[in-house]
């Protein structure tokens, strides 16, 4: 051993937790919608894309950064609500497969609209606080990575507070455990849906905005990012918020390690290999509970 392994390992770890944080936000988005409506929203990745692309667009049209960012979070949240109202509610009792196709239809519409108005080009914008790398134990960390991690941690903390301390948060949790019972105790479950989809859109967008200075964005980045967010949500066990966060980080780290040590060409395949292995041994993910189906 030449002692060189540590900096390299750290380098992979840094890039792993950075993308992992964005996957975690996407996974939380999946989880919110899954808990509120038992739907896997295949348009989740488009929220990530929208966050990045809209920020680019608003910056280009001369808005200051804070305004651009707020709008780029607000609009995807609105899109989330629209999806819920226009596509999910009317198809309430449809089968899983049907709902999957509906959300895929929604993702195509979003991607198509962006492609028409913002083009097929690849875009970026400057990192929030410069791109002077910070050296840590021989590895380097970009300030933007700190932004990603910091904001993601803040968001997770805020969500934790929201779900444990606010009435609305508790109402959402109650609805996810038992929708009928929640309705019976007077919870407005359609408000719950509304808020879950909005939050989910916002979470995705935040991840997309944070990542863009590091990874660039274009109209079609949503597919892969969204699918990996789905992987992360399943790794942790669908429906578990903690599982989503850990799943996101785990997927990010393993992907970065795999890309670094094994093969960068197969980087995108790694999360999917990982999920297959996990599901083979734990059919409900890492934190999913083991239940006996009632007959």
């Amino acid at each position: 051993m030449n002692g060189e392994w540590l900096p390299q390992f750290l380098q992979f770890l840094f890039s792993g937790i950075t993308v992992g944080a964005a996957y975690a936000l996407a996974a939380l988005g999946f989880t919110l919608i899954y808990n509120a409506s038992n739907v896997i929203n295949f348009a989740q990745g488009e929220f990530i894309m929208l966050g990045g692309m809209l920020t680019v667009f608003f910056l280009q049209s001369g808005m200051p950064m804070p305004v651009a960012v707020v709008l780029a979070i607000f609009i995807p949240a609105l899109v989330g609500i629209l999806i819920e109202k226009l596509a999910i509610e009317p198809a309430k009792n449809a089968e899983v497969t049907t709902l999957i196709i509906i959300t895929i239809g929604a993702s195509l519409v979003i991607r198509g609209v962006v492609q028409v108005f913002l083009g097929k080009g690849t875009h970026s914008f400057p990192a929030f606080s410069g791109s002077e790398p910070i050296a840590i134990a021989g590895a380097t960390l970009l300030p933007q990575s700190l932004w990603v991690l910091g904001v993601a941690a803040l968001v997770v903390a805020a969500l934790g507070w929201f779900f444990s301390r606010t009435l609305m948060g508790k109402a959402i949790l109650a609805t996810s455990y038992n929708r009928l019972a929640a309705q019976l105790v007077g919870i407005n479950t359609s408000r719950v849906l509304f808020i879950s989809y909005a939050l989910s859109g916002a979470l995705g967008a935040i991840g997309g905005i944070l990542l863009t200075p590091l990874t660039l964005t274009s109209y079609d980045v949503g597919i892969m990012l969204g699918l990996k967010g789905f992987v992360a949500a399943v790794v942790g066990g669908l429906g578990s918020g903690l599982g989503a966060v850990i799943g996101g980080l785990l997927v990010g780290i393993i992907e970065a390690m795999g890309a670094g040590y094994i093969s960068s060409a197969y980087k995108d395949a790694i999360p999917f290999g990982l999920i297959l292995v996990i599901l083979f041994f734990m059919p409900r993910g890492l934190f999913g509970s083991k239940v006996t189906d009632r007959v």
Partner: peptide, 20 residues
């Protein structure tokens, strides 16, 4: 012209919502 993806996605959604 350029709107194919949007049209395709809309048709999928429309069909599935009204003829699940």
């Amino acid at each position: 012209e350029g709107w194919e993806t949007v049209a395709f996605g809309s048709i999928l959604m429309f069909c599935m919502i009204f003829m699940p």
